[in-house]
Structure formats: structure tokens, C-alpha cells
Write a protein that binds this DNA or RNA. Structure first.
Lengths: 215, 215
DNA sequence: GTCTATACTGAGATAGAC
DNA sequence: GTCTATCTCAGTATAGAC
């Protein structure tokens, strides 16, 4: 009973500190002092700092990928044999990410941490990889129903690029003010940002292929 | 004469170490040992670790923004009163970034460092801000000649989003293999990637506005 | 099974001798 | 300067209390 509590406290605190100060710069001792738990309790629950990081990542990555999959299945069930529509597919893919970013403060910490790790080219935990690949493959298949003229390799790259760009923009906070341009109306309003992303990428996905005429 | 040499050695080494290990995790002592210079020499040339970071960033950011500006001016001179064209504008904006990323290993180190700092929401040096804003404003103006139907606030956000997404994709190396999809043909070939980005964002920029009907 | 107190080991900083 | 002894602090490990 105390176990669940300690585990969660450690995960929440690690999520925040890893995001704020980075993985390497966060010491286990600082972590336990903030979480109010014993140093050895972390080792008992997670075994190592690396495993703790993996669990912090997976705790939200798995539900996000599962939500993306269930969103897609719901669209497929509703559409029967009709087309799902590009915009609905984009929504299904990015909404879990947008919700995570709005889930303050912890969801946002997680996203910041994820993007920091990505820019550091760190390996993400293997345990989430199979689900992530499955999710991705299904979306590429669904998108290719809407855009049959695109080679699947290029379509896959477009879907990857879309998801990565959204995550990047959600975490990037300093570039916009530095540009000295009023853009808050779009970026800081969740509904506007969502609408923007859907329209922007709906148009982008329909761009003519580049692989066709080079391969 | 040794002065210039030491300065450049320190900047090159800092660029690499900051990118590989992060700014906080890179100790001045590690830096001087790798650069083969004296600890006091860094203090003499830069004054502080923070100023050193600023100079590492500015050393490439300023030439990149200047190149973007000169690219744009060349396009404007050639076009006279004709339209420049969306694709040409996108090329002018992103080519300096693509070239930087291909300038191995140091240009790539710089880009990795820049994106790490961005995900950490760190302030970038003020000295480059004016040029950066000027460059951005001119591009927004040029794009708005091609897309007069878009409100300038939203157009600005699209241009910001474009540049950020490109930089993100250039630095992100682990996500693609993790997806287990063959996408190397696009991502790993500089010409294909460039063509992809130009077409993808040319279509995206032409998407219908989202601000019009919400404001 | 959960958690605490404490110890171990190695990398890196520090500081004094020369 | 540079060498070397020492110190600090990191992640990790173990023994035993509840």
C-alpha cells in the first residue's frame, strides 16, 4: 500500500526533475530529498536510474499510443467502408499529444523530457517500441487509404514528420517571443492551435510525392 | 596569433562537448583538457561559461541568418516586380540550415546544441536577436506577397512552425529507426529531404486560414 | 514484500608539495 | 606547472527492521 505511493511519488518527482534539470544532472539523492523517500527505495522499485527513466517515459507513452490506436479503431468502426477523412485521422493521431501537453504540470514535464531525450539522441525504452510501431503502421495504412497515390515509404515519413513537428512546437516556448511577433492568438489557444495543426498538415500530406520522380 | 588559434580551438571544442554532453554537464576543466588550452585562457577570452555558450551559438547563427537575408534579397532582385514563388522562398529560408546540418561534424554539433537549448527553454543570446527578428520579418513579408489571403499573424506562425520543424527533423536521429519503417531513402539523402521539405511545406503554407473564422 | 540505514566503488574536483 | 594525495559526490549494493 505504501509501495504504490512511494513508486508514484518517485515517478512524479523524477518526471519533473528530469524535465527541468536533465537526466544526467538530476542526482538520485536530490530526487529522494524532493520525493521524501529513501534512497534505497528507488533501487528496490526500479533497480537503476536508467530503468527509472524508462518507466517515467513508458508511464505516459503507452497510454498515449493506446489512445491513438483506440481513436483510430473508433474512426474505422464508424466509417465502415466509407473514407475516414484526412482531418479526422490527423486529429486521432495528435489529440493524445495535445491533451498530454495541456495536462499541467506533469504531462507537460513528460513531453519536455521526451523531447530533451530525443534531441540528445538517447535510446528510448524497448518495451514501448512494439506498441509504438504497431500504432505507427496502422496510421500509415489508414493514411494511405486516403492518399493512395503516395508511396508508402514517403507517406510514412510524412506521418513521422507530422508527429515530430507537433511535439516540437508544443515544447518550444522561447522561440516565439524571441521573434518579436504577435503569434499568441494561435499558439497559446489550445483550440486555435489544434485547428491550425489539422489544416496545416492536412494540406501538407496532400503535397505531390517527391520519391516518384527521383527513384 | 596564438590568440585567434586558442579562441577557435575553445569554440570548436565547446560546440562539440556542449552538444554531446549538454551545457551543464560540460565542465570547464574537461573543456580545456580536450581543447589543449589553459583554464585561464578561457576566462581571458570569454569571461564566463555563459558568454562562451553565447559565442558558440552566435558564431553560426549570425552567418545563417545573414545568408537567409542575402538569399531573400537575391530572389527579390531577380524577380523585380514578378512573384518570387513559394518554393523559392522556402528554399532560401531552409537551405542555410540544411547546409549547416551537412557541415560535419561541427555544423551538426551546433544544430544539436541549439535544439537541446531550445527544448530546455534556455534563453538564447540577445546579440543575435535583432538580426533574427529582421530576417524573420522580411520573410513573413515576402511570404505574404505570395499568400495575401492569410492574416499576417497566422502566416508568421506558419513560417516559424516551418523553420522549427525542419530543425527538429534534422537533429532527430533515433525516432525513425525506432519506428521500424524504411524511410532512409528520404531522410538520409540530402537532395530527397530538401525536395520533400519544399513540397511538403509549400502545400502546408497554402492551407486555408484558421484565424479568419475564429476571431 | 517494503522500506531504512549504511557501506562500497569509481570518477572528478581540489589543494598543497615540489 | 604538474603531480599526487585527498576529498566529494555520484550511482549502486547489502543487511536487516517492519
Amino acid at each position: 500500500m505504501g509501495s504504490q505511493n512511494t513508486r508514484e511519488k518517485v515517478l512524479d518527482t523524477a518526471e519533473r526533475l528530469f524535465a527541468e534539470n536533465g537526466f544526467d544532472s538530476t542526482t538520485m539523492r536530490h530526487l529522494v530529498s524532493k520525493a521524501g523517500v529513501n534512497l534505497a527505495a528507488i533501487h528496490y522499485h526500479f533497480g537503476s536510474k536508467q530503468v527509472l527513466l524508462d518507466e517515467v517515459i513508458l508511464r505516459r507513452q503507452i497510454p498515449i499510443d493506446e489512445k491513438r490506436l483506440s481513436n483510430l479503431k473508433e474512426l474505422e468502426n464508424r466509417a465502415k467502408n466509407d473514407a475516414i477523412g484526412l482531418e479526422a485521422l490527423i486529429e486521432a493521431l495528435i489529440d493524445p499529444l495535445l491533451e498530454c501537453s495541456r495536462d499541467l504540470p506533469n504531462g507537460r514535464h513528460w513531453l519536455v523530457l521526451l523531447m530533451r531525450l530525443r534531441m540528445e539522441s538517447r535510446e528510448l525504452p524497448n518495451s514501448g517500441r512494439e506498441l509504438h510501431q504497431e500504432m505507427f503502421r496502422r496510421y500509415v495504412d489508414a493514411f494511405s487509404q486516403e492518399l493512395p497515390q503516395l508511396p508508402s515509404e514517403e507517406l510514412a515519413y510524412r506521418v513521422y514528420f507530422l508527429a515530430g513537428s507537433v511535439a516540437h512546437a508544443l515544447v518550444d516556448t522561447k522561440s516565439l517571443p524571441a521573434l518579436g511577433y504577435g503569434m499568441a492568438k494561435i499558439h497559446d489557444n489550445a483550440d486555435n492551435l489544434r485547428s491550425f495543426l489539422i489544416r496545416f498538415f492536412s494540406a501538407a500530406l496532400q503535397a505531390p510525392s517527391v520519391v516518384d520522380d527521383t527513384g
